Simulated assay, not measured.
Amino acid sequence: MWPTLVLVALFVAAMAALPWLVRRLQQKNLLPRGMGMARGAAPLPLQTLGSLSIGQQQRVVTVQVGEGDEAVRLVLGVTTQQIQCLHVLAERKEYTPAAIKSEASQFADVMAQAQRQASQDQGHV
């Protein structure tokens, strides 16, 4: 009976130490943090530029992925169930009042389309 009890105790101790071991390996870069990257590829820098709450569990978030000329800015709709890309701002430019109005109307069209689609999806549930 004692050998079985010792084996069970060792197994429980190993399971309890596993999260600590994984964290240590990640800190030493021996174990990858993300599972979606190709081997040896460095992760793209990601920066949150802004966030706006539009409901109890819905947000619109603007993020920048990459650096320099390769940077892409994304406008994302974030809910508890999904993240959806609403708009892509591929280049930086100086905005004039007319350009801001044009971009705002385009974004309003995208938001209206997303709301129509969401209401249709809720009607089918």
Rank of each mutant, 00 (worst) to 15 (best):
M1F: 03
W2S: 13
W2Q: 11
T4S: 07
T4D: 12
L5K: 08
L5N: 09
V6Y: 03
V6G: 00
L7S: 11
L7I: 00
V8N: 00
V8W: 08
L10Y: 02
F11V: 12
V12Y: 02
V12T: 14
M15N: 06
P19Y: 02
P19M: 02
W20L: 15
W20K: 07
R23T: 10
L25D: 05
L25M: 13
Q26H: 03
Q26W: 02
Q26G: 04
Q27V: 05
Q27T: 08
L31Q: 06
P32W: 03
P32F: 05
R33K: 13
G34T: 12
M35D: 09
M35Q: 08
M37V: 00
M37W: 12
A38W: 11
A41Y: 07
A42M: 11
T48W: 03
S51A: 11
L52G: 00
S53W: 06
Q58A: 13
R59G: 00
V61H: 02
V63H: 04
Q64A: 14
Q64S: 10
V65A: 09
G66V: 02
E70N: 08
V72K: 10
R73I: 01
L76V: 02
Q81M: 05
Q82C: 03
Q84H: 09
Q84E: 13
C85Q: 12
V88R: 14
L89M: 14
A90G: 10
E91I: 07
E91Q: 15
Y95R: 10
T96S: 15
P97T: 06
P97Q: 04
A98K: 09
A98S: 11
A99Q: 14
I100D: 08
E103P: 00
S105T: 11
A108E: 11
A108Q: 12
A108Y: 07
D109Q: 13
D109H: 07
A112W: 05
Q113Y: 06
A114K: 06
Q115S: 09
R116A: 14
A118N: 09
A118T: 10
S119N: 14
Q120V: 00
D121G: 14
D121H: 13
H124Q: 15
V125A: 15
